[in-house]
């Protein structure tokens, strides 16, 4: 065997050769296609709200996002979204549907512990960090933008 002998110190490095490499390129392509399809679907929804329901282009975003969230929550409940997630990875995790999935799955998981301490407490178990960093970074960027506008 040409390889170095496995021992406690080199194990982390040497054991890599036993682990199947994640197919990065394939995963990226799957994520791109599925993520893209979700966005195309969102665009179609948005056009639908503009043309059939008389929403303006700026306002059409709200019902579009709401519809996507509803569909994602339903797919989560029917046990389909996690399968899409295993296939698509970031493709289905990054769009708003992924956020909805993380909230719905947590709600479902903790239903057995009751509405208040189960569902309500754990609803944002996974999504909470997204909200925290979203709010904090919006705040920081807002200050930067405001400061910038004072001088330029």
């Amino acid at each position: 065997m040409a390889k170095e002998k496995l021992n406690e110190n080199n194990f982390e490095k040497q054991s890599k050769s036993y682990q199947p490499k994640p197919p990065y390129v394939l995963n990226c392509m799957k994520a791109f296609i599925v993520g893209g399809l979700i966005c195309v679907f969102g665009e179609a929804l948005s056009q639908m709200y503009i043309h059939w329901f008389g929403f303006s282009e700026e306002k059409a975003g709200d019902p579009t996002v709401t519809t996507l969230i509803l569909l994602s929550a339903l797919l989560t409940g029917f046990g389909i979204y996690d399968r899409i997630g295993q296939f698509a990875g970031a493709g289905s995790a990054v769009p708003v549907t992924g956020f909805a999935n993380s909230v719905t799955s947590a709600a479902l998981e903790h239903k057995s512990e009751g509405i208040v301490l189960g569902v309500a407490t754990n609803l944002f178990k996974l999504a909470g960090s997204v909200i925290v960093f979203g709010v904090v970074s919006a705040y920081v960027l807002g200050i930067i933008r405001y400061t910038w506008s004072l001088f330029f």
């Binding site: 682990q19 199947p20 994640p22 995963n27 989560t76 409940g77 046990g79 979204y81 996690d82 399968r83 899409i84 997630g85 295993q86 698509a88 990875g89 970031a90 289905s92 995790a93 992924g98 999935n101 993380s102 719905t104 799955s105 947590a106 479902l108 998981e109 903790h110 178990k125 996974l126």
Partner: peptide, 17 residues
């Protein structure tokens, strides 16, 4: 899954390992 990882229906991708 619930004890050690994520909610059952959470759509996170798992590696082959």
């Amino acid at each position: 899954e619930r004890q050690f990882r994520y909610p059952t229906e959470y759509g996170g991708q798992k590696p082959q390992t």
